[in-house]
Computed example of a mutant assay.
Amino acid sequence: MTNGPEPWQPGSGPSVAGKRHAPATQRNRDAIVAVLRDALPSSGLVLEVASGSGEHAVHFAVSFPDLDWQPTDPDPAALASIAAWRAEADLPNLRPPLMLDAAGDWPEIRPEAILCINMVHISPWAATLGLLERAGAALPSGGLLYLYGPYLRGDMDTAPSNLAFDASLKARDPRWGLRAVEDVVVAAGREGLAFDRLVDMPANNLSLLFRRRT
């Protein structure tokens, strides 16, 4: 047993009473914050779906102290990790984690914005459809839905590294894999979420921003 947090792998097993570490978090968190600074409301509740290790939630709560942050995840191991990171950070604007399945029933919560980072490709398509449906129902007019991760794009070639990643995901679970931006935009539109903009991010990732229609 080591003193440091364990490496994070989605669905990696039963609950572990300790922090997990997702190496990608430190590489992408500041780039995500730069996008969110111009997109998030000045105050209110932000719901993070599929918070994973919990490291993003801590970083965002530090970066946006006037916003209230609610991390969630369906995985007991993730919830334990989020709770451990939250206890260490001791931030007044970071709520205890909630169990939440993107495709299942959501708790009664009315966020001003919803974030979902690196879930769409590591979950069945039904999880994305559930996220979009419930975000469309929960967000106020103009409320933000922010998605981050690797995607396929019809207007340009996919990076070889992303194609290899897509193949590795499908080998782990045939229901997983990179989604086409166009498919996500169409599905979001059916739930009253208008596509706002796309932002190219480091390491062949994208930020997709949607707004709840009035």
Rank of each mutant, 00 (worst) to 15 (best):
D105W: 01
V33F: 04
A78V: 09
A159H: 15
A77P: 01
P74G: 09
I82A: 00
V58A: 03
L131Q: 12
A57C: 09
A57W: 09
L36M: 11
L131R: 06
A77R: 14
G142R: 07
L98E: 00
P111M: 03
P74N: 15
Y146A: 06
P76T: 13
W106R: 02
E55W: 05
T128R: 01
S141I: 12
Y146L: 07
D38L: 11
E55H: 01
R95D: 13
P111R: 08
G54V: 10
L91V: 04
A39F: 02
A57Q: 04
A89D: 00
G143R: 03
D155L: 05
L132A: 07
Y146C: 08
W85H: 15
E88R: 14
F64L: 13
P111G: 03
T72Q: 10
A77I: 06
L144W: 07
A31R: 00
L40W: 05
P71D: 14
L163H: 11
A57D: 05
D105S: 15
D68F: 06
E108F: 00
L79K: 05
P124L: 10
L47A: 06
R29I: 10
P140G: 02
Y146M: 09
L139H: 06
D73Q: 04
P76I: 12
V49C: 14
A57M: 12
W69Y: 14
A78E: 03
H56E: 13
H121W: 01
L91D: 01
P150I: 02
D75M: 00
